[in-house]
């Protein structure tokens, strides 16, 4: 092949790669621009903290923000300990080829791909009706927990593998008990994985609509307890844009709040993760 055609080939490849990358970023930039353009002018301190009026066309999103935080709090409060426990069980208390372990792993993989509306129906049947929690933040948070558990468990289990077989053996060779090994060696190693899994789960939970409509409902009043129904930000956006004529401006502003929230979660988690890895390599 001549040098000339080689050069042309290089050039074409560069152009193709640049075009692909640009095309991928366009929708994102468009979306952010659209949100800012339409939502920014409605965003204010008052909007974020006051109650909605006139079905959301006026007023703000205070109670909705609180409901969302409560939902996510219940979700993570349940999912993190259960996820850690299950991951420990899978990696430390069952052999890799054990029937029960395989069964759990298989079901987790299936669960991770189940559409959220199915979780909604399941949550409604189990938490709202069978367990009698009704349409409540508790039901919604528990349903979200079921949704994020699969991904959380798999990432935490993966991070236990950072601890090599030799390190486990040498922990045992020092006469360390299993509980000490888990507490001092395995759990600290799982923190980065927990953060990653937690963030992915949190992102999924905070943006969820379908699973919540059936479980936490869409009452937009300030919740007084976890047993009250509460509307999440995403549900509010859905309601404003689909069911409320003239609700679009506030839907945009709410979306802006939601996206900022996601940004903040992402930034703080990568900050924590980098702090964590740094402190493990450098003097503290």
């Amino acid at each position: 092949m001549s040098r000339q055609s080689n050069h042309v080939q290089e050039y074409c490849l560069t152009v193709i790669i640049w075009t692909a990358a640009t095309m991928v970023s366009i929708p994102f930039i468009w979306l952010m621009g659209d949100l800012l353009w339409n939502g920014w002018s409605h965003l204010s301190f008052n909007f974020v903290f006051s109650a909605p009026l006139n079905a959301g066309r006026e007023g703000g999103i205070g109670p909705i923000l609180i409901s969302t935080l409560l939902l996510v709090g219940v979700c993570m409060g349940v999912a993190v300990p259960m996820g850690m426990g299950t991951a420990l069980f899978l990696s430390e208390y069952t052999r890799h080829d054990h029937v029960l372990g395989r069964l759990i792993r298989g079901s987790l993989d299936v669960l991770a791909g189940v559409p959220s509306i199915v979780f909604g129906l399941f949550g409604n049947a189990l938490f709202c009706q069978v367990l009698g929690f009704g349409f409540s933040i508790l039901s919604g948070g528990l349903t979200l927990a079921c949704m994020v558990l699969p991904i959380l468990i798999r990432t935490v289990e993966e991070s236990f593998r950072v601890i090599s077989r030799e390190q486990r053996l040498s922990a045992a060779a020092l006469g360390l008990s299993k509980s000490t090994t888990i507490r001092t060696i395995l759990l600290p190693a799982a923190i980065p994985g927990l953060l990653v899994g937690g963030i992915l789960g949190l992102g999924r939970a905070i943006a969820e609509t379908a699973a919540l409509i059936f479980t936490s409902g869409y009452v937009d009043r300030m919740p007084e307890s976890l047993m009250d129904s509460g509307r999440s930000l995403a549900v509010h956006i859905y309601d404003l844009s689909m069911n409320v004529a003239g609700g679009n401006p506030h839907a945009y502003a709410t979306a802006l709040v939601l996206v900022s929230l996601l940004f903040m979660i992402n930034l703080s988690s990568s900050w924590i993760a980098s702090r964590w890895t740094l402190s493990n390599q450098l003097p503290t």
Partner: peptide
């Protein structure tokens, strides 16, 4: 107790992912 009496070193160094001091304190505390 047996493993306390019989120490073992492996081919690859197997320090734990924390400080030098904590590596040595862990078995003592245990």
């Amino acid at each position: 107790q047996l493993r306390r009496t019989v120490g073992m070193i492996f081919q690859k160094p197997t320090v734990f992912p924390f400080s030098i001091r904590k590596n040595l304190e862990l078995p003592l505390r245990e």
